[in-house]
Design a binder for these strands. Structure first.
Lengths: 136, 136
DNA sequence: CAAGATTGACGGCTCAATCTTC
DNA sequence: GAAGATTGAGCCGTCAATCTTG
């Protein structure tokens, strides 16, 4: 808990200073990019570990400055697609170096190569474990 | 980030069901207990990774139900001491088994003994590292 | 009726300003 | 003037209720 809090705090400070793109905004843009540029509203919520209402309001704010846009889902008229705009794509690309450097500075830097690999294995085990025990 | 979010979410659900003592309340009580029963306001804030105003409001809520109490610091009249009450001590003790079981179920269970030791080493390295680079 | 998304009410955190004591 | 603590305004997340479409 303490490691998470400290690393996130430091990352946010760095990004606020250098980049003006908060960490969760960056995560949103990267998530969309990795998904090919667009996702359904509820898929986005799940991947960002947000509730649906939080996702709605989050997308409201990001759409307001033009980094993403909503379109009605062609296959299900109830659903909304959230898509990266060209502006959003550029914002993600220009934010990437600062963000990755911050992660390295506040996290990776303090670990050996071997520790990084073990940590990845361990955390993935927990993620899988959590998924298994979700419905207990 | 994802591991943290998932584990905290599951822990909170468990605690809400079984125990009615939120995770951050438990952390507050444990922190005070480990400090010998009382802490200065700003020390508490630091150990819980909260801002001072957040700590003030947090203690307001917990004091309102009688688990902690404020007293004026004897050595510095500007300062406040936050102390466990007898009720708070009992609440922490009765919450401990549920909380520890939850941590085991959602976190420890999925790790081998060796992974746990390595993870502890790794996370401590980051905590120390963060403290070193705080003022860069 | 169930699922996707949104909205309103409310809780809790942050920032800046304030008050008190060193 | 600086540090400890608090307060007010505003932002953001959650929960429950609502609207629309399957």
């Amino acid at each position: 808990m303490r490691v998470h809090a400290q690393v996130v705090d430091h990352l946010e400070s760095d990004l606020a200073d250098a980049n003006h793109l908060p960490l969760d905004w960056y995560e949103l843009l990267v998530t969309l990019r990795l998904a090919g540029g667009a996702l359904r509203m509820h898929e986005l919520a799940e991947q960002l570990t947000l509730s649906r209402s939080a996702a709605t309001r989050f997308v409201d704010r990001v759409e307001e400055v033009g980094l993403v846009e909503r379109t009605i889902c062609p296959t299900d008229r109830r659903g909304m697609m959230v898509a990266l705009t060209e502006t959003g794509r550029r914002a993600q690309q220009s934010a990437a170096p600062v963000t990755l450097r911050g992660i390295q500075r506040h996290f990776g830097q303090h670990l050996t190569e071997q520790q990084i690999e073990e940590l990845a294995t361990t955390l993935e085990a927990i993620l899988r474990g959590e998924e298994r025990t979700c419905d207990l």
